[in-house]
Design a protein around this nucleic acid. Sequence first.
RNA 1: CGGGGUGUAGCGUAGCCCGGUUAGCGCGCCUGCUUUGGGAGCAGGAGGUCGCAAGUUCGAAUCUUGCCACCCCGACCA
Length: 491
Amino acid sequence: MAKKFSTREENYSKWYNDIVQLAGLAESSAVRGCMVIKPYGYAIWEKMQAALDKMFKDTGHSNAYFPLFIPKSFFSREADHVEGFAKECAVVTHYRLKNDPSGKGVVVDDTAKLEEELIIRPTSETIIWDTYRQWVQSYRDLPILVNQWANVVRWEMRTRMFLRTTEFLWQEGHTAHATKEEALEETYRMLDVYTDFAEKFMAIPVLQGSKSENERFAGALETLCIEALMQDGKALQAGTSHFLGQNFAKAFDVKFASKEGTLEYVWATSWGVSTRLVGALIMAHSDDHGLVLPPRLAPIQAVIVPIYKTREEYDTVCEKARELKNILEQKGILVKLDDRDTYKPGWKFNEYEFKGVPVRLAIGPRDVEKGTVELARRDTLKKQVISVEDAGQTVASLLDEIQKGLYQRALTFREENTRKADTWEAFKKILDEKGGFIMAHWDGTPETEEKIKEETKATIRCIPMDKNKQAGRCVYSGKPSEGRVVFARAY
RNA sequence: CGGGGUGUAGCGUAGCCCGGUUAGCGCGCCUGCUUUGGGAGCAGGAGGUCGCAAGUUCGAAUCUUGCCACCCCGACCA
């Protein structure tokens, strides 16, 4: 019998979990709050990594690797940083186990207590800046443009597959610059890289902006972000880029001799995206039939399903299918030929549908005769018959069309779900009835933001980088406002 | 950490109130035959320390106590 998906309408979070499970992306593990990323889910992450890594290299960055453990004392160097992360740190206190004297299993050996406890990194600013001190003496050592692909641990109370897990995978860029201007420029450059990645690869339109004081990264002077809108009307932060000023340079005493011979503190940035993007991908495009993947991030872009009755038919159809596979591969398309005879075609159709494979090609005896193949696209679920001969071109341009179509569909959705609110009543009404982004005036105070959050659970997602801001009155307090900001309930 | 709930085969569950043969069912799995253009049908088969421990009892999945795990709701967050 068919495995049934929950629909988005019925139960959005169950629908999300069903997709994660049935598409084979991840499953929960024996460790509370931690997931196992399964091969298909990890393949998507690898595609993301590959694209981002190239973009980082193209903008002059190199990869490096820093330790998983951070001495506890490092954390207390930067006051805001400690305060931001202290409540969610895993701590290593011992380095040895011994047999339980009572004979059952093993216990911590109390004699093997660490002199200084180690924190499992929730982010690496501290260990990296402690290292950068050694690397920097002169302006000639700058800039340092380093990225790290790593796992981090943040001890969260409540977790959700990909969106919030105790351990997650990410990349963190950490750069050091001689001037404020250069560091700021880097902060904005990497935000643009993320924006580009989200729009071109993930097919998700994003809003660029800066975070309010409440939402800012612990230790940053300015946090820039990209915000995406999910299909249930909730916002999701898809990437952040921080201007750290000289905070970490001062905390870790990273100084350089300038051209002029003066001793200056280094200027810093950090920026990151995580496996959370896989969650964003799911929630942005998928439908009630399962996952929908944008071609540029799909581990399999086209799958070929042979249809046959007899052994002879199987052989001739598969032979033709292999030809077709070749034709497509010559166009650089990632093709899988599913010639397993242990599953029926109908079963495979469903399988690849909920795995989100953009294009499905079914080829049977009738097609072999006529030199055709049935093509079904995942985004619209529409089918057509095409000729094998020009399948390469047809599929290649279709993948392109699907990529653009998904972006366009997501963009339309966002536009339809972005609303202005000029009164507090209207603000609450939109949140309760529709969700989405709300453009509203705000008096600029953390107190007002806090009150709005308490009453509605909506937060300021970002303060847009809008050049032509128009003044108005705060939707909550009625006090003067410099311009509209973006509110939403968020993941 | 506070409130609520659930633990029975790989997954989902019935049985528990009211203790009593061999713990039932669906999916999945294995074998065989027929099937194969949208999750096939029939027949046969394998698979269980009923979360763990103690107690009550002639007898415990079922009653009692303790422990453990997981899920949902709140405070935290990329």
